[in-house]
Amino acid sequence: MADGLKRLPVHECFHSWQGEGVHLGRSAYFIRLFGCPVHCPWCDSAGTWHPDHVPDEVARQSAVELADQALASGAEFVVVTGGEPAIHDLSLLTEEIAKRGMGRHLETSGAFEIRGDFDWITLSPKWQKLPLEENLAKTSEFKLIVEDEQSIAKWVQELGDYVSKASTVWLHPEWSQRANSAVLESITRWVKEKGDPYRAGYQMHKLFNADVLDPNSRKSAPLGGDEAKGY
């Protein structure tokens, strides 16, 4: 099989807009790949790995097919996400996307070697499997998930200069805690006291139901912070 025709396991592909981070609000084509060994108990894309939510069939598509679909969508750039997309070799996919003149963004936990040429990397570290130092060094923006009042300080201590000297660090309430006043206040206090590079973040696309407006998107399967399901 020709290199460009080697197939990746795909959970869903859809056209929406980026709901988080520096590129918030921009038209984006999302390629959500299947598989994740990290298994966060609050995962909001559990259909990519959790046995209670995995679809009966997992489609496989070539880098050429995926890049053609992205271009045809009219989106400004492509976001490769998961699951954990970096468990796959993404070199051919990024090569094909680049040939079509589109930006190549990655959303990753940073815990696995990144194979592929990306011009933007969003790293959201997870305690279940900490990021590789080589990935911390090339991160474009960090997204820290705030599960409780101690989360921010714990991550800042763990990541050290990589996060304190980053250009942008987003502080996102874990979605099942989005109405928890203690969690929200911890984010507000940190931003007010520390300033840059810290910013309060949110998953804005969920307020708009933006992703579900594309018929190719799948219904989300959030675990909602249930520790018993994070296996």
Rank of each mutant, 00 (worst) to 15 (best):
S186R: 07
A179P: 01
A72P: 14
Y198S: 04
V191D: 03
T122P: 06
L130K: 04
A46T: 06
Q61Y: 07
R178G: 03
H23M: 02
W190T: 11
I187H: 07
E185Q: 15
M102Q: 12
S217Y: 07
T122Q: 02
S140L: 12
D56V: 12
D52I: 01
A182P: 03
W42G: 04
H88Q: 05
A67S: 14
Q18R: 03
D89V: 09
Y231I: 02
F77V: 12
K165W: 13
S186G: 14
E57P: 01
S181F: 04
L184Y: 09
N216M: 07
P125I: 01
G224T: 14
D211G: 01
F30C: 03
F34N: 14
V22S: 06
F118N: 08
G110F: 08
P131G: 15
P173H: 14
P215S: 06
E65W: 00
V64E: 05
F208H: 07
L136F: 07
K192R: 13
S167C: 08
L33C: 10
Q61F: 01
S91H: 15
F118Q: 06
R199N: 08
H15T: 12
T108W: 11
I145P: 01
H105Y: 15
Y202S: 01
D117Q: 02
D161I: 05
P222N: 09
Q203D: 10
L8F: 07
S45N: 15
R218T: 04
P222T: 05
F112V: 06
H53E: 07
I97M: 01
R115M: 02
G4E: 05
F14L: 07
I187N: 08
G224I: 11
P85T: 04
E96V: 00
P215A: 08
T139L: 06
A179L: 10
A75P: 07
K229D: 13
W120C: 03
L132Y: 14
W120H: 10
K138H: 14
Y231P: 01
R60L: 05
T108K: 07
D211E: 03
D211Y: 01
V163P: 08
H15R: 13
L90W: 12
T81N: 01
T94K: 03
I187K: 02
G25N: 08
A210W: 01
E20D: 12
D3V: 08
S73D: 00
Q69Y: 06
P51G: 13
S124R: 03
S45T: 10
M102T: 00
L144G: 00
F14V: 08
Y231S: 09
T81Y: 09
L130Y: 13
N216R: 10
A67G: 00
E193T: 06
E12Q: 13
D214R: 09
W49K: 04
S217K: 13
V58L: 11
I145W: 05
I187T: 08
S16M: 13
D89M: 02
H105A: 12
E12I: 15
A111D: 02
L144S: 06
S124H: 09
P215L: 11
D148S: 15
L71E: 11
F77L: 10
T48I: 05
P9C: 15
L71C: 00
D148T: 06
